[in-house]
Write a protein that binds this DNA or RNA. Sequence first.
RNA 1: GGCGGCGUAGCUCAGCUGGUCAGAGCGGGGAUCUCAUAAGUCCCAGGUCGGAGGUUCGAGUCCUCCCGCCGCCA
Length: 557
Amino acid sequence: MGFLRTRFPLSLNISFHARFCEQIRRNYRKSSRYFSSGQTEPFFVTTPIFYVNAEPHIGHMYTAVIADSSARFHRLIGNSVTFSTGTDEHGLKIQQAALHANEEPGRFCDHVSGLFKTAFKNCEISYTDYIRTTESRHKENVHSFWEILSEKGYIYKGKYEGWYCTADEAFVAEDQTMLVKLPNGQEQRVSTESNRPVEWFSEENYLFELSKLREKLRHWLKSGPVIRPLRHYNLVKSWLDQELIDLSISRPRARLSWGIPVPGDSSQTIYVWLDALLNYMTVAKHSQSKMNIWPPSVHVIGKDILKFHSIYWPAFLLAAGLEPPKSLLVHGHWLVDDQKMSKTTGNVVSPQSCINLVTATGLRYFLMHEGVPASDGNFSMKRMVRIANSDLADGIGNLVSRCCGKSLNPLQTRLGVSPSSFESCGTPGSDLLSLLERTPDIVHDEYQKWNFYKGIDQVMALVRGANGFFQTMEPWKLKKEGQLDQLNATMAVTLETARVVGTLLQPIVPSYSERLLDKLGVPQENRSWDFARLRWTTTETALGSQQAVLFPRIKFD
RNA sequence: GGCGGCGUAGCUCAGCUGGUCAGAGCGGGGAUCUCAUAAGUCCCAGGUCGGAGGUUCGAGUCCUCCCGCCGCCA
């Protein structure tokens, strides 16, 4: 039976395709730390879309918080941000999970996708586009893209034989399988990688000529720091040292009906990873932004899906004549009390259980404080509480409380600062000034390099400096002794430091920073990165009337 | 088996482009203060920088071998 090529009418997407082919110069180095020139750039950051076969866990949230912190940071520096996340809703496992729940797949997906949305909301994830692969805009895009690949000759029909893992939804090379003995003495062949059973399959599929794209992929890899951290770059580089095997990109509908049909051949369903990866393009096509946001600036992904994002996805795009993503940020996984998180072990951490204990603020802070992109993290409820208490309640919260209490600040105002404010405080003042002047640039650079944990370290060093300064100046004594000029200078300097701290921490802990800046009476228009540094002013600002406790200490045993 | 990454104080990390043979935070111990979210501040203890060689005036930092952990390929 031959492969019947069915021509579809020209799509409205053709004109979009033409725009896509426009080259955009790559710029991996920002020309300026501060966008005083007013130049706005598009910044398109994505998470992967999450499979709805299970509820969200801490790992999903980590990805989302990294992307969110990055998106917020880029908004603060004046960029036009597109931030997409969402859910991947096609595939055999979804089909099976829905059946098991005695639900129609669509309803099942509505439910679980809703759980993800709620989790993102509760964790203050400020995406601009939430996409679901069951949406018609996405299906249309997938159809359109298939047509492009087909027209360019990258798709052919062939017989695919090999070991297939239903659980992983993937074909597995024989040498990547092994025979294991079951408890009942029978032998079972399983995937070496996932230890899940494989079966021999022989069926007709559509195949994608991945083998033709190795050189183009290598070129993309060399074009810049497209994969961070470096160890993952090296891994992909080694993958591209070998021949690439053509990729099966469809499944017979007889066994996979929950998905997007192949255009012109309803007996086949499009392979879920082609479907899923195109979500990024669907978002771009339907972007409200007035700028051309393609290609994506960065895909934030977990290391487990590196191959899909570093080989298949760019290959699809290159085959279609489109530009691949500018970069991938690959982060590690979270262990839980030194053990791998898994349903089998029963130690899956739900974000909601964390939020219930430490709030979204505490959870985000912990993830960004402890998350080192190049390595796996180790989650512990105890440690999360400790860190949140130490920095958010004690370090910063208490500092603000010291300054905003009526005892030392009866008029409830924040005075302006000038060079003489620091000078009149002697060495402690000049030490703090030095730290205050250095910190914003360091934090900017670390945030830019995705080292949020280092940026946070620097902010906390500033906080400790401010507490030390306050302790040295002893304003409660200055008040008693009637040294009002020095008292006012001390309060103004400390409150200005707190203002800078609040501004710098917006990407990490947005609502906490908002409360802090509200308390300090900072107008909304004064919260961009331009204000994330010391500013001389004579303006006296009224403090907010809100309660001064920014983050109540959490009791935990 | 081959290749790559990692191993620094109890924990998390910085330093890693050779130059006070080592720092920070948390935790621990002690002191002090009471403006303050029982917070703050000061002091102290904790280190064979995985091990052994080598290069060098000098190595946590460079080279070799070995040990352990993780990953990829076979």
